[in-house]
């Protein structure tokens, strides 16, 4: 075959390919605009929960009695007055011990398909048992916890009111804590109101939302929580680094820690983006102090590109529309503080 023929042949192939590309793009886009629903759903404005039980859970949530040395409560690391998390990269447990991952927010946690960064708990009840017994968090045994609570007349009365008898079991404690967290939903964010056609977004916010989709953020951050419904890898294009020297071998609390599968390295449950402006620092290890930095680094790790300042600003403005109202249970009632 002559060289010229080869070139010609290649050019013809290219032309065909381009033609095909155009046709396919058109088809895909047409399909996307016509058929796809919005990939994000608004939070419900009211949620179902047992009020009395949730109030009991609320009390337990803030009670340092639940930690071995009586120094910390659930609320120590999940600040309900802030974003439902704490401002440390990793939380401090009893006796000043610290863990390996950033405290995730308890707000809207009920909508996550799994709990914990690596999804090791199926639901809130299962989740609650973790930090209580974790030696670097609250470090208490179920028996000790039951003893302590049973000694408290006010708890016995409260449990009787909710469960019909004053028998305080670990399972009931978990149940009450979970019920409280079910109430921790932050509805009516500007974006939810936009989704409900109640209030338009600003031009920049809309640009940010478009970028959010065009850049592929939404392929992982979708659903009601903009995340929390799949495991994804941080560092698809560029491997994840947290900036420390021992970084490569340090425990990461990722999926691999659970499955021992090397393919699961750096796989985490996608974190929710709701109330994201309130939950700094960012990433699973809390290694990014600001949202702008987190956005920039996500571009690096998963797109392999440096996002433009304009893109970051647009995305930032969009993400701020995800901040909702404080949960109703925290706004009123005797234990609201």
């Amino acid at each position: 075959m002559l060289l010229s023929e080869v070139t010609e042949h290649k050019q013809r192939r290219l032309a065909v390919a381009l033609l095909l590309l155009g046709a396919l793009l058109a088809t895909a886009l047409a399909a996307a605009t016509v058929l796809a629903d919005e990939p994000i759903a608004p939070l419900p404005q009211a949620v179902d929960y047992d009020e009395a039980k949730a109030r009991l859970g609320q009390r337990l949530f803030s009670d340092p009695l639940l930690s071995l040395d009586r120094t910390i409560s659930c609320a120590s690391c999940h600040d309900l007055a802030a974003g439902g998390d704490d401002s440390r990269p990793v939380s401090l447990g009893i006796m000043g011990r610290s863990g390996v991952v950033n405290s995730p927010t308890v707000f809207n946690a009920r909508f996550n398909f799994r709990q914990f960064w690596n999804g090791r708990a199926r639901d809130l009840t299962e989740q609650a048992a973790g930090p209580l017994q974790d030696p670097v968090e609250m470090g208490i045994t179920p028996a000790e916890l039951e003893n302590r609570l049973n000694r408290e007349a006010s708890y016995r009365a409260a449990f009787t009111a909710v469960y019909g008898d004053g028998r305080i079991s670990f399972a009931r404690v978990l149940d009450a804590l979970a019920e409280f967290q079910k109430a921790l939903v932050t509805p009516d964010s500007p974006f939810d109101r936009y989704l409900r056609n109640e209030q338009p977004l600003s031009e920049q916010e809309l640009r940010g939302y478009l970028a959010f989709k065009e850049l592929g953020c939404v392929t992982c951050h979708n659903g009601i929580n903009l995340g929390g419904n799949s495991y994804q890898k941080i560092g698809v294009i560029n491997p994840y680094r947290n900036g420390t020297a021992a970084d490569h071998d340090s425990p990461r609390g990722d999926r691999q820690a659970l499955t021992n599968d090397p393919a699961d390295r750096d796989l985490y449950k996608v974190p929710t983006l709701r109330n994201i402006e309130l939950t700094a620092p960012y990433f699973h290890d809390g290694s990014r102090a600001t949202l702008a930095k987190a956005l920039e680094d996500m571009g690096h790790y998963n797109l392999g590109l440096k996002l433009s300042l304009a893109q970051i600003q647009d995305l930032f403005v969009f993400l701020k529309t995800l901040t909702g109202q404080r949960p109703a249970i925290l706004q009123a009632g005797p234990d609201a503080s």
């Binding site: 850049l215 799949s230 495991y231 994804q232 698809v236 998963n302």
Partner: peptide, 21 residues
């Protein structure tokens, strides 16, 4: 399914991004 979602998102992320690139 969880693994599929991971791969799916990865592929789609790339699929969204490659035309732009």
């Amino acid at each position: 399914l969880n693994r599929f979602l991971t791969v799916n998102s990865t592929l789609q992320n790339s699929a969204v991004y490659i035309p732009r690139l």
